Amino acid sequence: MPISPRRSAVAAAVLAAACALTLSACGSSDGTSNASASNSASQQGAPDDGTTLSPSGNDGSGATQDPAAATTAPGTATTAPAGAPAGKSSGTPRCHTADLTLSFETGGDAAPDTTSDAQQTAGISVHNRSSHACQVGGFPGLDLNGGSTHWSLSRQSKHYSAITLAPGDNTDFQITFLPELKGKWTPKSVTVTPPNETTSVTLAWPWGPVLLQDGATHPGTYVGPIG
């Protein structure tokens, strides 16, 4: 007996209801299963720009970021304190003032051009005159003395490391200074205290007038490190 259109519609509605109640994957007209629900669930919480979320504290490369591992950009330097420790890691004693001979470097092109108003450098040689090796590194204390003025120089912002001086070895450090063409103030002597020492050495200042900036925040005259 032919099935009426009304009975066909009722049968289709009953079949659809049964699929929904049993939560089974009913076949589509092309034979594939309907997986849109699982696809939708797998995308919850994912950004819509195609990237994947990384756990907090991870850069996505598999290595956890360490906030304490920040490094200084190349070419930059920090101002190290005077009297930096030397000789502790290797057991080599540090160089004491009595172990060293200090003198201005004056030969060849070591002499600064005091006829120019541009910054100049003057080197001070550090010679190990002792019979044993010693380590030195850091900023010496340095005063320019002239009349009643005793100017303690600022320290250059520059990296340094301790170095070992065998008996008879030399190293040096630099004084950067601004000449004073009008000759208002000329240092008479320089007082040098090696790093970590309290005993000083006084040298005669061999060059001309220096622009006095003892009250400046960023003076053009300062001392560099040994090592």
Results as ranks from 00 to 15, higher is better:
D117F: 14
T106H: 01
A118I: 02
V136F: 05
G147S: 10
A111N: 10
Q119W: 02
D59S: 11
A82V: 08
S131D: 15
N128A: 01
P93R: 11
S54A: 14
F139A: 07
S116M: 06
N128W: 00
L102C: 08
S154G: 14
S157D: 11
S90T: 14
S157Y: 01
G138S: 06
A122C: 06
H159Q: 14
L153S: 05
S89K: 13
D109A: 15
A84Y: 11
D143H: 14
S148A: 15
G137K: 07
T121L: 11
T106W: 03
T97N: 13
N128K: 02
R155F: 11
A110Y: 11
S116V: 05
T78L: 13
D113L: 00
R94D: 13
E105K: 10
T115Y: 03
Q120Y: 04
G83T: 01
T114S: 07
T78C: 08
E105C: 09
G91H: 01
L142N: 05
N58R: 00
K158M: 11
P93T: 07
I124D: 00
S89M: 10
A110T: 08
A110C: 08
T97L: 03
S54W: 15
H150T: 14
S90G: 08
D117V: 10
H150N: 12
A86Y: 01
N128V: 00
T97G: 03
T64H: 09
N58W: 13
D66W: 06
G146N: 07
S148C: 02
D59K: 02
G137H: 02
N58C: 08
G147F: 06
